[in-house]
């Protein structure tokens, strides 16, 4: 067990990042039925925003300062790309997000330049010894930020008035509009929160591996996580994030020696297996369509 524990801690810490990013992705999907293919670019923009603030602020403050900017960025995306397509076929919005991804890739390079960057400063050291196992500072930070935020959002969606409105819109947008719910404003807020979560994940990632275009690849991980949890389940996204993080760590320990390179394919294999048994994901809503 003492051998296994560090792998589990690493997996949970990485899973926290998966969960954070998937949460924002699923939130948008649930509220608007839009699959946001630009989620990796949201993370990229967030990391660069943090980088910019870290040039003149200590890193924790820079991360904090980047969050409202990221929220604003989410609002702008909604206003510029999504709202003009409101009422159109959802595929049109999905295609727009693919275009947005390309535009953001180019925009980031234009604005910040192509050279390699890194976050100046460090987060305060929170690593500690747990018996024989050392719990690294990064793992503590990932869990410390992702868990309360994820659970808080879940609570907000279930219990708060804002959450009820989001759920009402996601149930039936036209009915929500008819009841006088400020749909456009609330949906803009959902995009803002999604960008904010992606920014946090991006900043936590960039602390160790630097700020650069490679971060968008992390966005690809969101798809197996979200599908596994159930595309419309916010709680499922968080759970699936942790699950995949831990499974990847365990695969790194036990399967890699016999199947080198397998861990890269693992998320997709798990998704395939789960979808065979539960086509709507672990916690997704079972939808029955009558034809």
């Amino acid at each position: 067990m003492s051998d296994l524990l560090p792998y589990l801690i690493g997996g949970l810490a990485n899973g926290a990042l998966y969960g954070l990013l998937a949460l924002g992705f699923v939130l948008v999907y649930r509220a608007t039925s839009v699959v946001n293919f630009a989620i990796g670019e949201f993370l990229l923009v967030g990391a660069y925003l943090t980088y910019t603030f870290a040039l003149f602020l200590p890193l924790p403050l820079a991360m904090l300062a980047a969050l409202p900017m990221a929220f604003l960025f989410g609002l702008l995306v909604e206003r510029g790309f999504v709202r003009p397509l409101l009422g159109r076929n959802v595929v049109a919005v999905i295609m727009a997000t693919i275009g947005l991804a390309a535009a953001l890739d180019g925009g980031v390079q234009l604005l910040w330049g192509p050279d390699l960057k890194y976050l100046q400063g460090e987060l305060p050291q929170l690593g500690f010894q747990l018996g024989d196992t050392f719990v690294p500072s990064r793992a503590v930070w990932n869990l410390l930020l992702a868990l309360p935020l994820g659970l808080g959002l879940l609570w907000l969606l279930r219990k708060s008035r804002y959450g009820v409105l989001v759920r009402a819109i996601s149930e039936r947008e036209v009915a929500a509009l008819a009841l006088g719910i400020p749909t456009a404003r609330i949906l803009a807020g959902v995009w803002g929160i999604s960008a904010l979560l992606a920014t946090l994940a991006g900043a936590l990632l960039a602390v160790a591996s630097g700020v650069g275009h490679n971060l968008v690849f992390f966005g690809l991980k969101v798809f197996p996580v979200a599908i596994l949890g159930g595309l419309d389940s916010v709680g499922g996204a968080l759970l699936a994030g942790f699950l995949l993080g831990v499974l990847e760590a365990l695969s790194g320990r036990y399967l890699e020696p016999i199947l080198p390179g397998f861990t890269e394919a693992l998320p997709f294999v798990v998704v395939l297996l789960v979808l065979m048994v539960r086509p709507y994901g672990l916690l997704g809503e079972r939808q029955i369509e009558r034809v």
Binding site: G10, A13, S209, R253, P257, P260, E264
Partner: peptide, 21 residues
């Protein structure tokens, strides 16, 4: 020891723990 990894990833814990072993 040999470790084959993806070209980009977000957590090096399993790799480093395997190396440590």
């Amino acid at each position: 020891h040999e470790e084959v990894t993806p070209p980009a990833f977000t957590d090096a814990t399993p790799i480093v723990l395997n190396l440590r072993r």
